[in-house]
């Protein structure tokens, strides 16, 4: 009995230190982009790092945070292989929803966020790629012209969008990490205009 208790306590200690290490790695930015690659976590926490992340994710639930895993191929994988996990990027994101007041606190104006939402929704509807000119026209409908260009550049700088040499816009890493694309489209289509 005594032996078993000692074993359990040893195992708890083992995971507690790994959870601390994982928290440091995931919360503090280590590279130019936030997030940590699977192979980095494996190197620091050992082969059972998915289990460590699972325990940490449960802890974070109470704080309305979650561990988000983004796969390289942009699609969610039900049962990822160790190779796919190694290449995936892990982030800590908000689990629930922000209120408009909170969005102001994190440095976004309502206009800029609405522009971002429209841009992302439009690019999704265009199979993930849309000419910058078309997006500009769409935004100009509700935003002042001088702001449209600045905003699109800002979305690109933050990593929500990326562009190619033909001025085509695509969704970038931050959109994949932060936005539930299917929910956004479903909710937009289900919204009725308030008269």
């Amino acid at each position: 009995m005594e032996k078993r208790r000692a074993k359990v306590s040893k195992r708890k200690g083992y995971y507690a230190s790994k959870i601390k290490r994982a928290t440091h790695m995931l919360f503090y930015r280590r590279h130019a982009k936030p997030g940590v690659k699977g192979w980095e976590l494996r190197k620091a926490l050992g082969a059972d790092y998915p289990k460590v992340l699972n325990i940490l994710d449960n802890y974070l639930k109470a704080l309305d945070l979650q561990i988000k895993m983004v796969f390289e191929e942009e699609k969610t994988v039900e049962k990822p292989t160790p190779e796919q996990l190694d290449k995936a990027r892990f982030y800590i994101t908000l689990r629930g929803e922000l209120t408009p007041k909170e969005a102001k606190m994190i440095g976004w104006r309502i206009d800029d966020l609405a522009g971002l939402a429209i841009t992302i929704a439009y690019i999704i509807s265009k199979k993930g790629k849309a000419p910058r000119k078309e997006v500009e026209e769409l935004l100009r409908d509700k935003l002042p012209g001088w702001k449209v260009d600045i905003n699109i550049d800002r979305y690109i700088r933050y990593g929500y969008l990326t562009k190619d040499e033909n001025e085509q816009l695509y969704l970038d890493w931050r959109t994949r990490a932060e936005i539930d694309q299917k929910a956004l489209i479903d909710l937009l289509l289900g919204t009725e205009a308030k008269v």
Partner: peptide, 9 residues
């Protein structure tokens, strides 16, 4: 958008 946006911490 707020219902679908989960910003990185």
């Amino acid at each position: 958008f707020f219902k679908a946006w989960h910003p990185i911490v």
